[in-house]
Structure formats: structure tokens, C-alpha cells
Amino acid sequence: MPPVINQDLCIGCGTCADICPMNVFEQEAPKMVPTVAYGEECWHCNACVLDCPKKAVSLRIPLNYMLLHVDAAQFKE
């Protein structure tokens, strides 16, 4: 459900890689933009989004997690 890092905003602080509970990111060296090495293992906990000091991370939720819903008007018919 890979997190996506905005390369222009990221300052390579390494926070996302350090705090991700699933170890999704890998950072080759300090100051480098981490890579999303194991995107499929993301738990959508949102920690990387919340803790990135530059708001450089967003989550791309996979298509099939679609949160099924209907127009609630159907309940009143």
C-alpha cells in the first residue's frame, strides 16, 4: 500500500525509516531519500505521514482495499 515519498520535499532525515513498525523503508545513507523497499508490507498505520517533518509522505491505498459503501438514501426507501 506503498507510502509515496515526495522527492522534492524530503530532506533525508530518516525518521520514516526509523519509526515504521513494518520496516517498509530503507535508507542507504544519512541524508539520502529513503526507498520504499517493502511497500506491500505497509499496515497503513499512518505513522510515517504523521512524523515526517516535511510532510513529504503520503499513502497510496491499493485499489482493492476499496472501502465498500453505498448512498445512505437507499436505507430510507
Binding site: 499513502l59 491505498i61 448512498d71
Partner: peptide
């Protein structure tokens, strides 16, 4: 938070939609 962001992004609004 991730769920809320997703709902906002997809226009899923619990005051209008049944989930």
C-alpha cells in the same frame, strides 16, 4: 488517520454513505 484521509480523498462521507 489513514482511513480518514482515504475517505476524504475518495469522497466517502459517513454523513451521506453507508459503509
Amino acid at each position: 488517520g489513514a482511513l480518514l484521509d482515504y475517505m476524504d480523498d475518495k469522497g466517502i462521507d459517513p454523513s451521506k454513505h453507508g459503509v
